[in-house]
Design a protein around this nucleic acid. Structure first.
Length: 549
RNA sequence: GCGGGUGUAGCUUAGUGGUAAAGCUCCAGCCUUCCAAGCUGGCUAUGCGGGUUCGAUUCCCGUCACCCGCUCCA
């Protein structure tokens, strides 16, 4: 086994994303969406085995959350109910959640600091709210039309450096000022407007880009106008007017918050309790990349846990450790997992604490010291009462809780949210399972835990005669009631073992000559390729036990 | 979104301005008492669109997808 701590050396085989993607397509786990039309960026289809794997992961999550939730600190199972909300909701939901900001206003983005500005308000904002513009305007008198080059240079090297680090004149004062001088001297009869001066100061390569507009926050050159929206939209009804615009959900979480009252009123749940949901979500990712890791249509497994504010931190810690255990139980190696708490400046505005569960995907690679790098698999966020308060305010509905166990205290519950990527989980399982083994015919096998394996077992008659196929089919008919199993008769036995290795089937039951005499079969274990003989009547028990382990 | 690279069968690779070749895989049959064996037969490809040309997989342009690096990831 290659060491998983250090960066791979030329001697240790490397898990290459290219190979994993190829295996996924070849064996029917994941296909490029719209493949026969040349594909479509950011979308993937799950093939016959991929959908089994994905369903298995989703079902295991559901079981762990809803059917059989963990034991809480009080020694009793925590209370969690399920939900399946619509992908499309009233657009106001996404306004309340903060996903839809300026609606369809044209926005301009700063590539340096990520700030968004409304395009039609840019210059107003620059002159009234921008700290660096106000500071700049104090060092020279723009209305005279005269450019005080030394004063601006001085500002650029001093105050400007602090206030507008990405402004062109701050980064490269000589070149920018020489462009400005050229303009002044070239057209002496056309005095510069103040706006034009500021644009000049934001322009690093005038000839290549033309005049640029600066970011009010950092001075970086803004990108062109776009009606940027993270959310995909559609139009309801046949007459597609702006009034009919609706959004595809960008996360399943909001469907839970807006049903908080319905669930409270119908399910006899008491705080603390959770509502769990899995399903598709959609985002207009700028750059879908890294196979199914970042795609525009993906699946989430989210649970919102509602609790008293004073207990929020306790439940946060509870769910962080519970969720880590979940992924480990599915076979993700502990040293491929990273638990990382967000720094204060990294937290999104609604969150008080966030813990990422990150996985070392092959494309994450290693840093220069050889340390593993990681990508997000799940985030556990303490969302405070932000979402319920937002929806209470925007909907006008009361979303607080009258707590009979706390002297009828009335409060808006705080929320701990373990939010996992189902499709990212599938990728992590695939990457973890992918095992290079040059010694076997397939060269590679998928080391899935039996719980997640898309096929639990294959039933293989040693030969396609002498009653083997009939016996095999009998066993198959018994097992298929309870397990996803394959019956494979064609070709020689070695080929069939190899095929099952490559799709990660943990067990193969082989019917041979001895089976015909005493009704025993051999079990071939995928990882060791070792075989033992058991009674045909014990096969189901055998599988059942392996699935539990 | 920017820069670089790639694109011939399911995979790995040939080749050509004039009928696109092979091995493996896959499918059918035979054979075979345990790890991609053998024999026979079969399916399948120049990402897509346009241009130049009598003729383009080959040359040119565009586009799409994928990979790498930036950027992005409320």
């Amino acid at each position: 086994m290659p060491s998983t701590q250090a960066a791979p050396t030329p001697e240790t085989p490397v898990k290459d994303m290219k190979d994993i993607v190829a295996l996924c397509k070849r064996r029917g786990f994941v296909f490029p969406a719209s493949d026969i039309y040349g594909g479509i960026n950011g979308f993937w289809d799950y093939g016959p085995l991929g959908v089994e794997l994905k369903n298995n992961l989703r079902d295991l999550w559901w079981k762990r959350m809803v059917t059989c939730p963990p034991i809480g600190p009080d020694g009793h199972p925590v209370q969690i109910v399920g939900l399946d909300s619509a992908i499309i909701q009233n657009p106001k939901v996404w306004v309340a959640s903060g996903h839809v900001g300026g609606f369809s206003d044209p926005m301009r983005k700063c590539p340096k600091c990520g700030h968004f500005v409304r395009a039609d308000h840019l210059w107003n904002i620059l002159f009234s709210e921008s700290e660096w513009v106000n500071s700049l305007l104090q060092v020279f008198e723009p209305h005279t039309g005269r450019i005080d080059t030394p004063a601006i240079m001085n500002w650029a090297k001093g105050k400007g450096k602090k206030l507008a680090p990405n402004l062109a004149v701050v980064k490269d004062p000589e070149v920018v000022m020489s462009f400005l001088a050229t303009r002044v001297n070239g057209q002496p009869n056309a005095p510069l407007e103040i706006q034009e001066i500021v644009s000049h100061l934001a322009t690093a390569q005038l000839n290549a880009t033309g005049l640029q507009d600066p970011c009010p926050r950092c001075g970086g050159a803004l990108e062109g106008e776009s009606t940027f929206n993270l959310l995909m939209h559609t139009y309801l009804g046949v007459s597609a007017t702006e009034d009919d615009k609706a959004y595809l959900r960008g996360e399943t979480a909001q469907g839970i918050f807006i049903n908080y009252k319905n669930v409270m009123d119908s399910s006899r749940v008491k705080v603390p309790f959770g509502i769990a949901q899995t399903g598709k979500a959609f985002r207009n990712e700028v750059t879908p990349r890294n196979f199914i890791f970042r795609s525009r249509e993906f699946e989430q497994m989210e649970m919102e846990f509602f609790c008293h504010p004073s207990e929020a931190n306790m439940w946060f810690d509870f769910w962080v450790s519970e969720r880590k255990k979940f992924w480990e139980d599915l076979g993700l190696k502990t040293d491929n997992l990273l638990m990382r708490e967000h720094e204060a400046d990294e937290l999104v505005f609604y969150s008080k604490r966030t813990f990422d569960i990150e996985y070392h995907f092959p494309f994450n690679g290693f840093d220069e010291k050889g340390n593993k790098q990681f990508g997000e698999l799940e985030g556990i966020a303490y969302r405070t009462d932000y979402d319920l308060k937002q929806h209470a305010e925007h909907s006008g509905q009361r979303l607080d809780y009258l707590d009979p166990e706390r002297d009828n205290e009335r409060y808006v519950p705080h929320v701990i949210e373990p939010a996992a990527g189902l499709t990212r989980g599938v990728l992590a399982l695939l990457c973890e399972a992918y095992t290079i083994d040059p010694s076997r015919p397939s060269g590679v096998y998928l080391n899935f835990h039996p719980k997640v394996a898309p096929k639990k077992a294959a039933i293989l008659p040693l030969m396609a005669k002498d009653g083997h196929p009939e016996k095999a089919e009998k066993l198959y008919m018994e097992l298929r009631e309870e397990f996803a199993v394959d019956l494979d008769i064609k070709q020689n036995i070695g080929k069939r073992y190899a095929r099952q290795d490559e799709i990660g089937t943990p067990f193969c039951f082989t019917i041979d000559g001895q089976t015909m005499e005493d009704d025993t079969v051999t079990v071939r274990e995928r990882n060791t390729m070792a075989q033992e003989r058991i009674a045909m009547s014990k096969v189901a028990d055998y599988l059942r036990e392996k699935m539990r382990a």
